[in-house]
């Protein structure tokens, strides 16, 4: 997951604390030695207790898909990869589950609300719209890319997938990979869709963390 690296009190450089809480990583910041929950992004101990790191939009896709999304992009260059346990592939996403059959979901948070979208559900529907924290979202499963993506969309907007294009009911179409519009509408210049932050999560764990949270497909 990706957090903005600053809070209301300033920049936070974050490291691994060596601690676990509820089987989840606890982080620390170099500026104040405060502790942070990796899962929630909340300061849980020290001077910054009560502050929050804000989730930032990112994508969770295979490398081949990444190159299509960002042809001039760069890639972290660390090669001493040792543990096979970390070798996740987009086929894991396509299966909708990780090892031992643990179901995967997209976890969303906004304004104190949570929403889980099980990958199996998303793959079946291909395109799902919902609301969280007063914001409307659209989740996509791109079968050929084996990739889930989430965008924020205007209220009242309706979309469908057609021949690899994300088509808006009232006109206009977008590239589902990048959110960029194909052409412009006559009435106004089309702007790209905004990515909405999501986390790839184990559904079982997410339900434990957020027992009151909504889970699409079970409502």
């Amino acid at each position: 997951m990706v957090y903005a690296g600053k809070t209301k009190s300033g920049v936070a450089h974050i490291g691994v604390s060596g601690r676990l809480k509820d089987r989840n990583l606890v982080m620390w910041d170099e500026e104040t030695n405060s502790l942070w929950s990796q899962l929630s992004g909340e300061g849980i101990y020290g001077k910054r207790k009560g502050e929050s790191l804000k989730l930032s939009p990112s994508v969770f896709v295979g490398f081949a898909t990444w190159k299509k999304m960002a042809p001039k992009g760069q890639v972290l260059a660390l090669t001493d990869v040792r543990a096979k346990i970390w070798h996740y592939t987009r086929q894991d996403l396509a299966r909708g589950a990780l090892r031992r059959g643990h179901a995967l979901a997209l976890g969303l948070r906004s304004q104190g609300e949570t929403l889980a979208i099980p990958l199996a559900f998303l793959q079946k529907k291909r395109i799902v719209t919902s609301e969280i924290g007063g914001k409307r979202i659209l989740a996509l499963w791109l079968k050929d890319e084996m990739a889930p993506l989430v965008y924020g969309i205007p209220k009242g907007a309706h979309f469908h997938l057609d021949k690899g294009r994300l088509v808006q009911a009232k006109g206009g179409a977008f590239d589902p990979l990048t959110g960029k519009p194909f052409g412009k509408t006559a009435s106004r210049p089309a702007s790209p869709l905004r990515r909405f932050p999501y986390l790839p999560v184990l559904l079982k764990a997410w339900k434990t963390w957020y027992p009151q949270g909504r889970v699409l497909g079970t409502e």
Binding site: S58, V61, M69, A70, L76, V81
Partner: peptide, 21 residues
């Protein structure tokens, strides 16, 4: 091509972080 990455795209800048790294 199948390795999973976390990708951040901001303006013209884009960086991917392979999970296995």
């Amino acid at each position: 091509p199948d390795d999973l990455v976390i990708g951040i795209i901001r303006g013209e800048e884009a960086i991917a972080y392979p999970i296995k790294m």
